[in-house]
Nucleic acid binder design. Sequence first.
DNA 1: GTTGCTTCCGAAAGCGGTTTCGGGATACGA
DNA 2: TCGTATCCCGAAACCGCTTTCGGAAGCAAC
Lengths: 358, 358
Amino acid sequence: MSLESAFGNLSGYAPLKRVTLKSLAKSLGLTESTVSRALNGYSDINENTVERVRKAALELGYKPNQNARRLATGIAEAVAFVIPQNHSSLAEPFVAQLLQGLDESLARRGWDLLVSHSLSAEDESNTIHRLITSGRVSGVVLSRPFRHDARIDLLQAAKFPFVVHGRSASCDSYAWYDIDNELAFDTAVKHLVDLGHRRIGFIGAPLYFNFAHQRLQGYRSGLKSAGIGYDESLVQIAELTDDAGERAAADLLNTPKPPTAFLCVSDTQAFGVLAAVRARGLVAGSDVSVIGYDGLKTGRHTNPPLTTMSQPLTQSGRELGDMLLAIIDGDDPANHQILKRAKLLVRNSDGPVWTHHQ
Amino acid sequence: MSLESAFGNLSGYAPLKRVTLKSLAKSLGLTESTVSRALNGYSDINENTVERVRKAALELGYKPNQNARRLATGIAEAVAFVIPQNHSSLAEPFVAQLLQGLDESLARRGWDLLVSHSLSAEDESNTIHRLITSGRVSGVVLSRPFRHDARIDLLQAAKFPFVVHGRSASCDSYAWYDIDNELAFDTAVKHLVDLGHRRIGFIGAPLYFNFAHQRLQGYRSGLKSAGIGYDESLVQIAELTDDAGERAAADLLNTPKPPTAFLCVSDTQAFGVLAAVRARGLVAGSDVSVIGYDGLKTGRHTNPPLTTMSQPLTQSGRELGDMLLAIIDGDDPANHQILKRAKLLVRNSDGPVWTHHQ
DNA sequence: GTTGCTTCCGAAAGCGGTTTCGGGATACGA
DNA sequence: TCGTATCCCGAAACCGCTTTCGGAAGCAAC
């Protein structure tokens, strides 16, 4: 669309007459190049001139056309967040908060944040590919990496700047921001063990997600250091939904020797587990314990309020943005690897193990 | 598509050997202009040539540089969603689902979706202004309009394509997609009245939000048609958070003649109301009724599960995207005004009024 | 063998910026 | 007075693609 059609050159009010570099230059009696350099902080422009140009630009409301600028400089001044297509996760608050933090970081520099969302799993590589060849963005942020992630391989092969929220199995040479999932689940197990639990159910997620793998490892390591054997019949792999969590918990509850505690890889699943527990006539927090992961706000309002492990999402978005920016500026990605700890947020769904003799 | 074909030459790492229109043309023995027109479906190119060009483009992995294309055509092939800055609402699932739908609609056309997030309230007009003058986007979608919304005025004055999720007080001449808020709350009141309630508390939002205004109107009209007088002492205006909802409900509960039911303009508030009710030792669904609005999934897991009114968010995002695209293509915005109905989603937080004589 | 159409493609002028390069002023030392 | 170094600014190429315009072929018709 042309600017004429966009702003309507016709009828009476002529809104928003676009002020371009050329018009600005002319009105100043200078050249485009001079004005451009003045605005971009080149040192070979007289201080007075710079001031004069700045003032005029402000008054006339000059905004450089981003497309032109990007074409000329070759830098897109935008990064893409590719939405994990699995399970329509954009709907998860998880993603929303991350976006918020990202945007904050980018906005400080005036960059754009665009979200990209692919339809199928293998389509995702295409999406990435299109992103990096189209010149639309100068960086990409990934989330929920797989254990072996083709998108990461693609990005690395192309030497395209990117950061990932989480990490894949081999993560030495790229930038990531992750929670120490193994530690988190290790300590969660420890917490439950301290409450007296020995039969701890685990509601996991498909293991091609690396975080699922890590958390399972943490679960096992926690068990191990407590001297408890790993019992495969206590672990369920479920989708990241409440319904799946509910089904998985129900299955575990129907077993002859059901667990006295449930550890879930996501709050959403844990919500379902809570439901299963209630359906069974049990009360979470006394009869059984359930612990989630994510620290969702709404966990405050479940029945009972969900004990969970929280990760600072908005802040992680900000940090991811800062990292990506630094890498685009030339930093070595390997120098940008951040490992944070999750915090155990005790609400009311956990408690000492229930025994017959009480 | 393989890495090989994507990035051209082989051996070692050859990062991003970009195939440009020029290189493509040269390898075909044609001119840039010919190739460009062939790819863009111009009719003055021989059918065979078109085929040949298409094939080569695919093989060599040619992707047009979006910035160049945008500069040349003047159309940005991107639209912006401006995040309501109030209350950091991006974190709300609300926004996330809308984004999802929007992205789906735009992706069908290969357009970008970028999110823009301003820091302060008055900064928002600046954000809009920057958006429409920078040439980055060819359309804008707004949400949560104010009753009198400067952003809308700005957009209209600039004749810039936009759609809004919701509508302001005067909404004849632009495109919007809205739920019939008045109707929704009218029927919600009716529902409560049918359950025997006469003292219905209303937890509203600041009235500069038009939806807040509409819903209050609906509340009043429902009361009126039930022959119940409007009692100002039963309405509270609160922020759109759980804490605010909780405080508001607590205030109402502390009154000498507390309401027997609560109608909230958002689920998040209703979560808080539920907490206040519990804190008071009452049980929602029998002692008092509480009804939310939004249809959040997590409402299934509150204590008790929240009765609410749901609006189809993902779908509305899609429709908003389609509308915006149509308008950018030249449609008259006034022909794109969609009014949907909310559905009452009865879960367990409502019930017949409690009486002493039962 | 002109004339007159089509059909198909090349030439070239942008789109609105950025950036390198060179040179005219001015200042300064000799 | 004549370099010559320093400061500023203009000229021009370029980023990669789109689009208008004109014209070379090819073919039909007269």
